[in-house]
Design a protein around this nucleic acid. Sequence first.
RNA 1: GCUGGCGUAGCUCAGCGGGUAGAGCAGCUGAUUUGUAAUCAGCGGGUCGGGGGUUCAAAUCCCUUCGCCAGCUCCA
Length: 641
Amino acid sequence: MRVTLPDGAVRVFPKGVTFEAIAEAFDPAVARQAIAALVDGVERDIYLPLHADARVAFITPDSPQALEIYRHTTSHLLAHAVKDLFPEVKIGVGPATEEGFFYDFEREAPFTAEDLERIEARMREIKARDFPIRRIEQPKAEALEYFNTLGDNLKVELVADKGGEVVSCYRQDRFMDFCTGPHLPSTGRIGAFKLLSVAGAYWKGSEQNQQLQRIYGTAFPREDQLAQHLKLLEEAKKRDHRKLGPALDLFSIEETAGPGLIFWHPNGTVVRQILEDFWKEEHRRRGYQLVTTPHIARDELWRLSGHLDYYKDNMYTFAIEEAGYVIKPMNCPGHSLIYKSRLRSYRELPIRYAELGTVYRNERSGVLHGMMRVRGFTQDDAHIYCTREQILDEILGVLDLVIAFLRAFGYERYEVDLSVRDPAHPGRYAGDASGWEMAEGALTRALEARSLRFTRREGEAVFYGPKIDVRMFDAIGRPWQGPTVQFDFNLPRRLGIHYIAADSSATPVVMVHRAIYGSLERFMGALVEHYAGAFPLWLAPVQAVAMSITDRTREHARRIRDAMREAGLRCDLDDRNEKIGAKIRDAQIMKVPFMLIAGDREAQAGTVAVRSRKEGDLGPMPVEAIRDRMVTMQRERVLGP
RNA sequence: GCUGGCGUAGCUCAGCGGGUAGAGCAGCUGAUUUGUAAUCAGCGGGUCGGGGGUUCAAAUCCCUUCGCCAGCUCCA
């Protein structure tokens, strides 16, 4: 039997040799490390035998596939411990996730924090016992009987749903779980882990089913990796916009007014208006026309657009003189009415309508989250109405705009998804196939033309059209929902949006929705977390604070403040009867980019001692020097210190 | 909406086998006139999220409601 090893060498082994033995023959150091084998690209348990020629490689704790195996095996350890401590508990599913792992359990009483501690302690005991973990392939009927005997009805359901006659299970000591594997070869090989929380989760992910208790945890091959992960969670907590927002006096949510509604304070409004101004400027430059549409409209409009049928539960409706009205949850029907207010010639196209439109949606109470998920928000919405021939150029224009914005805010890393039709169910979609083909082709070619790598997601398109979604990664590597570009083959048809073509026929227009910020609220929240509240100068609500050291230098400090304001900078004055250290501390806590300190020496010389929040004391300099530096930083939207 | 947890001063938190509420920071007043992350002293501040109940007595026990947090489901 010929085995091709990772270094390309071919060696002959007897049939039935285990991967462990192959590893040993390849490199004893690798053999000690190996946790699983890759056989012709398929992951297999390290102790299993090989029966035919194959390419064999080894997964070690540093391999990209390792993390999932560690986590998945730790989830089995969790279930094992829970079964030990609470034999009456029924086990559900327990996969590895991006962040760690979880396992779902059915149990009358809720798991308490103390239960989690006990379970974790038991997990450590089982790990210490170093039980071998072995794959068992058995007839489906036998596995069914096994889980039936235990009363594990959830597992029975899972096994029964599984196709084929033979199923695989994994056993460690007296605990056995239905699983495809692979797993670590023994419980002692499990690395560092920690249980984190317990939450409800619907069986098989359906709201119709019963709710189980899901225990979350995370696991890594080594302790230092776990420690680093926990540190990242701490860091994320410090950046939480729900903490920083009120602390920096940017916004608040008022219980008296209701959940999911944002009150933008003066500091937050400064940032918001910069976002708005920047946005308007960039859009006008690129041939967008700004429009304004009403906040309420007859439900007739929403019936025509189809939204009322589909999203009734999420729309706020009311009556005026017995006529039904809707508070707008979207801007597109309004923009389309402007388009339709008169006949449009092909000569006018493309038409690009843009609006910072405030909409209200009745989000279910459980989904509300700071500024990220709210009931009232302002979309940076624009709709492009064009001909089929113009599609590619329009998409290119949108992508250029998207890239410019990501760069301006310092989102260096992003991922792009292209969502297209599910080829298996062509009937599910609005519009004709040729339109979809053209749209999908244009999106693909535009992405390629701008050298944007993207993931094509079959069947992920919404029913009305294909789309591009951008995920942007913040300063500590977390993903955020970013810009989106969506074709719409539904609304033009429903609302009858046409243009008069060169042959004077009424031709359906191609409509594209697109948003860069998404919502000002969500984007603001993401920015706060991205910068940890320390906005770059061009966005900072307060760019500098002029500080007097004693009452003697109040006037000089005031003159410095005025000089900054004169130059269009946002500068406050701190002439309180406090020591300079206290003033600096307060400004530092408010994350003000520059502190402009006025003492006797500076008053004498007509200078200012500058301190940067990031770089510390920069020493004395002429007032004009720091003023000009800040003006330049503002104009060029510098992101650094 | 669902499961679980949590609501005490503006903020962070203590008090909770029932006996009528406390600290630090912030705020206010005064003293101090200060050189790169907290000057000192004094003072004021709370329907213990709201409502109902049990009790001689409730921040503490029970019910209910509102809000927040984690997750699930949802997100045009």
